[in-house]
Each structure stands twice: as structure tokens, then as C-alpha cells.
Amino acid sequence: MKKFKEKLSGRVFFVLALSTISALVLITVFIFVNGMPLIAEVGLFNFIFGMSWAPEQGQFGIFPMIVGTVSVTLGAALLGIPVGICCSIFMAEFAPAMMKNIFRPAIQLLAGIPSVVYGFWGLIFIVPAISTHLGGVGMSILAGSIILAIMILPTIISISEVSLLALPRTYKEGALALGMTHWQTIRHVQLPAAKSGIVAGVILGIGRAVGETMVVIMVLGNSVALPESILDSVRTLTTNIGLEMGYAAGRHRQALFATGIVLFVIIMILNISAQYITRKKVK
């Protein structure tokens, strides 16, 4: 009887674990089945590099949105990565215990704020500020980058900090014993040793920025044109789906699923490279 119970529990867990995988398979298959016909019809090259998105006129080119996604993500990375890494170094190396007790929960709280709240705050605060001080409407790459940079901070900070703290104590002790200063130790020993973990954190942060939808719908302005400056409005791949799914039918709907395929592939590449980099560290 006991043996039976043991066996049964194993099976139950297996089935439940399987359901996670099958959800992934189901969603993937569904996206591809719905999106591929349009890509086949328009042609992969025309779809990805097409400059004009006018579903009602039968034009399905998402290149401006790819540029939009890349530019907003790049902006967020430029703003967020230096701040995030410096913050993690501070937490791992400099902060006294009392400050750690303030910083760590605060950063966790930052991760817990729902994205719609970030977006609303950006719409009410950042967008008008940009419009007043720099001109234009304010809905722009800059606005999106600032908010996304804040949103990816917790990911970058926590993963970088963990990988800094996971280094063997002997690295630091050895470097100090050789006469290095604290900063030299961080710069030449600890950061290089923790590099793979930090890079993985950065990639996961970037993945979050690429996949974010609600915030960018609210503050990017959603124009489907190539941006000429960081004050121009752009549309990202996620926004395109979120914005137009309500009314889309027929080929328009297929085109949104096809946008999803492109997004899916980008996120997949980011996640796999993050995994690959962390795994290399273990070896």
C-alpha cells in the first residue's frame, strides 16, 4: 500500500509538471498556426522588412516596430544597466547591514509594482515633463526608455548582487592580501569573476523590457513610422498586438499573431543566451 502511494504521488507530480510543458506547447503551436499563413502569403522578408503597416489597405510590414522595440530597449538598457550594476556593487560590497535592510526590500517592492501603475505614472508625470522641457507631445522613445529602465532595475540588481555574493571569499582575500585596494579588487577581480551572472541578469532585464506591453502602449504614442530622434513616437511589437487586437479580424488578426511569432523568437533567443551564459559559469 505504501509503495503504491509512493508510486502514485510520483505520477501525480509528473502529470502536473507535464501540464506546464503542454501549456507552452499549446500556446506555441497556436501562435504559429495562426500567424504562419500570413507570413507565407506576404513573405518573411516583406513582413519583417516592410516599411508600411496599414492592415486595412492590406499592407503588413513590421520593420518600423522592430526598430521601435530595439530603440526603446536600447534606451532602457543604457539608462538601467549602469545604475543597476553600480547599485548591486554597492549592496554587495559597501552597504552596511542597516542600509541593506532598507535597500533590499525597496528594490523588491520596485519589482512588485504592477506595470500599469508605472505606465500611468509615466503618462501623468514623465510625458508632460518631456513635452514641457524638450518640446513635442512627450510620448516618445525617451519616455518609454526612462520608465522601462526603472522597471528592469530589480532584475539586474538582484541577479548581479547574487552573483557577486556567490564568489568564493578567497578571491577577495587573496586580492587584498596582494596589496590591492578595495576598488581595485572589485574592478579587477570580483567584477570579471561575476561577469557571466551579471550579463545573464542584464539579458533577463532586456527580455523584460522587450516583452513589456502596458507601459509602452501608454507612453510611446504608437506611431508606425521610423523614428528620427529620441523625442519621436514609436510602436513596439508588443504594443502592436495589444493596441489592435480588439477589432482585428481575418488577415489583420493573422498579422497580429505573426507579430507575436517574431516577438516569441526574439524573447526565445534572449532567454536561451541568458541560460547559456549562466551555464558556462558553472563548468
Partner: peptide
């Protein structure tokens, strides 16, 4: 003719009104 691609796109009457009333 087609609405120019540079147009800012908002997904509700309310959002359009909000934006216009503030700029």
C-alpha cells in the same frame, strides 16, 4: 487617402481627448 504613419495612435476616445487637452 491614408492617415499619415507619423500620427500618434491612441486606442480610445478618452485617451485622444486626454492627450489633446494637455498639449
Amino acid at each position: 487617402e491614408v492617415i499619415h504613419q507619423r500620427a500618434i495612435v491612441q486606442n480610445s476616445n478618452g485617451a485622444v481627448r486626454q492627450l489633446v487637452s494637455g498639449n
